[in-house]
Lab assay of single mutants.
Amino acid sequence: TKVFYNGTYVEFNNPEKAKKYAEKVAKKVGGTFTEKNGQFHVE
C-alpha cells in the first residue's frame, strides 16, 4: 500500500499502517488524504 505525498511515496505492507501514516501526514501539513485504488494520497 503506497502513501503518496508531495511527488514521492512511502510503501507499507500493511494497509492499516498506511492509513495511519496518511492521517498523520495530512494532519501535520493541514491537508486531507484520500484513498484511490487502494492507495492513499495526501493533499
Rank of each mutant, 00 (worst) to 15 (best):
F40K: 00
G38T: 03
Y5L: 07
T34V: 13
V10I: 12
K27Q: 12
E35K: 08
K20F: 08
K17N: 12
P15S: 10
Y5I: 09
T32Y: 14
K28H: 12
E43W: 15
T32C: 13
F4I: 06
G30S: 07
F4Y: 13
F40R: 00
T1V: 13
Q39H: 15
N6Q: 10
A22Y: 02
G38A: 05
K28F: 12
E11H: 10
K36A: 08
F40A: 01
V42W: 04
K27F: 09
N14Q: 07
E23V: 08
Q39E: 13
V3C: 05
E16Q: 11
A18K: 00
N6R: 13
N37E: 09
E11T: 14
F12I: 03
A18D: 01
V25Q: 07
A18G: 04
H41D: 04
P15G: 06
P15H: 14
T34E: 07
F12D: 00
Y21W: 12
K27V: 08
T8S: 12
V3E: 00
F33W: 14
V25L: 15
N6G: 10
T32F: 14
T32R: 10
Y21S: 01
K17Q: 15
K2Q: 05
P15V: 12
N14H: 09
K28A: 14
T32E: 05
K24S: 13
A26E: 01
K28G: 08
P15D: 05
T1I: 13
Y21F: 13
A22R: 02
K2Y: 10
T1L: 06
K36F: 09
E35R: 06
Q39D: 15
K2N: 03
K2C: 15
V42N: 01
K27R: 12
V10R: 12
F12E: 01
Y5C: 13
T8F: 13
G30E: 05
K19S: 05
G38Q: 05
V10A: 07
K28M: 15
V3M: 03
K19Y: 10
T34I: 14
A22S: 03
N13G: 10
Q39K: 04
Y21H: 07
E35L: 09
Y21I: 02
K27A: 11
F12S: 01
V25T: 07
K17M: 14
A26D: 01
F40S: 01
K36P: 01
K19R: 15
G7T: 04
Q39F: 07
T32N: 07
F4H: 06
F12L: 04
Y9N: 04
A26R: 02
K2M: 08
V42S: 01
K36I: 14
Y5S: 03
K20Q: 13
N6S: 07
V29L: 12
T34S: 11
N13D: 15
N14S: 14
N37L: 08
P15C: 14
A26V: 05
V10S: 06
F33C: 13
E16P: 03
A26H: 02
H41N: 06
T34C: 15
K20E: 14
T34L: 10
F40M: 05
